[in-house]
Write a protein that binds this DNA or RNA. Sequence first.
DNA 1: TGAGGTAAGTTGTAGGATGATATGTATCAC
DNA 2: GTGATACATATCATCCTACAACTTACCTCA
Lengths: 244, 244
Amino acid sequence: MKQRLAAIGTVETLPHRVAAFLSREIESGELNPGARLPTEQELSEKFGVSRNVVREAIAQLRADGMIEARQGVGAFVLAPEQRAAIRIDREALKDTHNMERLFELRCILEAESAALAAARRNQGHLDSIKAALDRMGGEERWEEGSIDADLLFHREIARATGNSYIHTFISFVCEQIRHSIHYARMTNPLHDLVEINVGEHVRIYEALVAGDPAAAEAAMRAHIVGAANRVGVKLPIHKAGGAK
Amino acid sequence: MKQRLAAIGTVETLPHRVAAFLSREIESGELNPGARLPTEQELSEKFGVSRNVVREAIAQLRADGMIEARQGVGAFVLAPEQRAAIRIDREALKDTHNMERLFELRCILEAESAALAAARRNQGHLDSIKAALDRMGGEERWEEGSIDADLLFHREIARATGNSYIHTFISFVCEQIRHSIHYARMTNPLHDLVEINVGEHVRIYEALVAGDPAAAEAAMRAHIVGAANRVGVKLPIHKAGGAK
DNA sequence: TGAGGTAAGTTGTAGGATGATATGTATCAC
DNA sequence: GTGATACATATCATCCTACAACTTACCTCA
């Protein structure tokens, strides 16, 4: 149990806190691209930590392409385009507007991917997807496990596209959403458990079995709009099922 | 000039190399989720570096959610779903198949985003997009600068969706592709400079001005398929312009 | 047998020392 | 005065040692 808490709470280590501070300063624009960071020594004094801690923090920012360190000169803020990694601020997701935007991105990714999957899936893929579907269809529809099964369902479809990047991106976005919803439920006990609509999933699965890209895409789009609604996010529908 | 080279080559620092090694070991499956990493001391002996260097490397992996370190116990590999960041291995992009997959993802993202942008753009957005278009339309069509303008064009369209996540994701994917093509040109002088097809861009822009989502989507899709072809990647078209 | 304490191992943090690199300054030859 | 060279300084890169905090396993003892 304690292990569970540790995994969720993510023990705040000193380097992590320093990195978060600097990261926020960069994102907020207080440190513009090209600007030079204080020296490691200045930072270690400012935060009251050892230079080692500062270096670990900077190593993280560097790995993300947020800053560039030049030996003998200093560390400089890089332009946002040069980022080597995508990261989503979980704090920001507490804002419903941001959650809405993330659902919109998810819809784009998953709808077209469902179409791709319908065209490329083989029997092995269908079996994996069916297994996930069965796991979430049981009577324990409101349990934690069925949420995992839901996620697995979506990931398996992404995998059926045969495109590892699509799989990575969709897994990532879904996981951010899941984590955010989970967190909201933990902090606000009034939050109901989200019901999973099995029917929507079945329709997606059937379209995949039939190998019908258009139907799979439409079903996926309807499902994600529905899922967003069920967690209190009204998704602006920008596209009716089939184009005229 | 030397500065330019440094910015491109990304000086291989020791922590970076250690992190890359461990990262590959995890991605390749030699270290499965749940497995424990060697102790920091063992790693420092194995690589012949100080424990400090190892710690900086581990700090990176930890920030990415690839591993979890527990004080007094050790560091453990996390499941791929728990990643806190998306990162694309630039080595892998040298393989044409992977480049093809990345273009496919880009196509999905940008096509629908173009439709969104057409529905939501305001005059300010159109001005920014037009400015980028003009910059790449000049006689210096084959120059490095026009490639930057091309990227800016796509980023500005992403920005016109009003969805910051979409903007982040598209910027990221485009930048990875740009970097990879740039690198290929550097190492293989036979590579021609890629010509930018201004006409395709103009068609996208006109659809945005007209506020026609379907046209914008179709034009963007055609453009990305064309751009892929021009760099030697044949993109499997999974969707004809307009659905019947 | 069970409870408690102890020791060993591991990560977290601190602090100092040295090497490598870039930059500005001062000196000196011409 | 001008240019080149040497030097001093600032900064990051790496290494080393030590200790604190935490976990685990084992051992002792009632």
